[in-house]
Computed example of a mutant assay.
Amino acid sequence: MLFLALLLGIARVGADCPKDCPKTCPSQLEVQSDFVKSSFDLTKFWGVFYELAYHDSTQPRQWPLKAACQRSVKSPHPQDPKNYKDLFSLNIGPGKGVNAVCDLEFNITERPGVFLGHWSGHSFFNPNLTNIANTVVDVGVAANGTYNWTLEFQCKNYEDASKGVRFAAVNFYHRKPVVDQEEFDLMMSRLRARGLGWVVDASPGLTLVDQQKCIDHDSYPSLDSKTSFCGQAPALDILV
């Protein structure tokens, strides 16, 4: 387990935006759909979303540590109405695997779907990304008005603006862990319509998530899990 934690920590490190990214991050309002800018409802954002695909260097993507079963549980912050919580989890290893659980936190701004993310890990291997612009690009509106999917885009420039984009990521989230190709293609077309095709086209491309693994083994963590293997808890958990 200790060896796994070390390897997982190493796998998290790395630039996520190679030379084929733009010179600077686009503005958050620029990449949002008209619906999100005018009508995004935060109360419909709460709950469980499963990640279908991602371009994100903070998630291990190569065998034998390729992440699976990524899940995002979004909820209001219990003490601070200006923030919200995202209990993010992923699974590594054969069989039921091992779950890493991260308690992420985001500032809520005056603009709908425009947030600022924070990472509070203490690991030596942690890239220590802080103050990351997190944007809801578009949502899928169900017949009852709730959101059945969401596209989230994160971006951060280097402190030295001449160095360009330090980090860029996109997450395809859905209420269902498995969807048909037509629905996934719709999400992709919405992302490209907002001028963000470069995120999924940039090396190493888009990684599809295996959710079936945890469906088969019933191995998702509980919805109120404590942080683990994420560098946010005391003692041994500082490794990742």
Rank of each mutant, 00 (worst) to 15 (best):
S75M: 11
I132V: 15
I238E: 04
Q59H: 12
P22H: 08
K226A: 08
D185W: 06
K96N: 06
L236S: 14
R12N: 08
L196I: 04
L4C: 08
P76N: 06
Q181V: 00
E152D: 13
C214H: 04
K37Y: 09
V101R: 14
C230I: 01
K176N: 08
M188L: 10
W46I: 11
A143H: 05
F229M: 09
D180T: 09
V136P: 13
E159W: 14
K176H: 02
I108E: 02
W119S: 10
E110Q: 15
S203M: 05
L186A: 15
F45N: 10
L191A: 01
K176F: 08
T207F: 01
V141C: 11
F125N: 00
E152L: 14
S222Y: 00
H55K: 12
V139A: 08
L87Y: 00
F35M: 07
D86S: 12
W46D: 00
A53N: 02
Q232G: 03
D20K: 13
Q154V: 04
Q181Y: 05
G95Y: 13
V31D: 08
F125R: 01
R194T: 05
E183R: 12
L236C: 10
G9P: 00
R12K: 11
T58R: 12
E110S: 15
A233G: 13
D216F: 00
A68V: 07
D210C: 13
T58C: 08
C230M: 05
A235D: 10
S38N: 13
Y84G: 09
D237P: 01
T146W: 10
S120A: 13
F3R: 13
R190C: 04
F172C: 06
T43E: 03
I92Q: 03
F124S: 11
A168E: 04
T135M: 09
G9W: 02
V48A: 10
Q62Y: 12
C230H: 04
A68G: 12
A133K: 12
D80G: 01
G113R: 07
L129H: 15
L65Q: 01
M187E: 05
N126G: 08
N99C: 11
V209M: 07
K37V: 04
Y54Q: 14
F88I: 02
G195P: 00
P81K: 01
C155L: 12
G95H: 10
A53P: 03
W149S: 02
P78F: 13
W149M: 01
F3C: 09
A53V: 04
P127E: 01
K156N: 05
A11I: 03
D224F: 00
S57C: 10
A133S: 12
P22Q: 04
A133C: 07
S57R: 10
L90C: 08
N83L: 06
Y84H: 14
N148E: 04
H217T: 15
V139Q: 11
G205P: 05
A235P: 02
N134K: 09
V165N: 02
V137G: 11
P22Y: 07
K226H: 07
R71C: 03
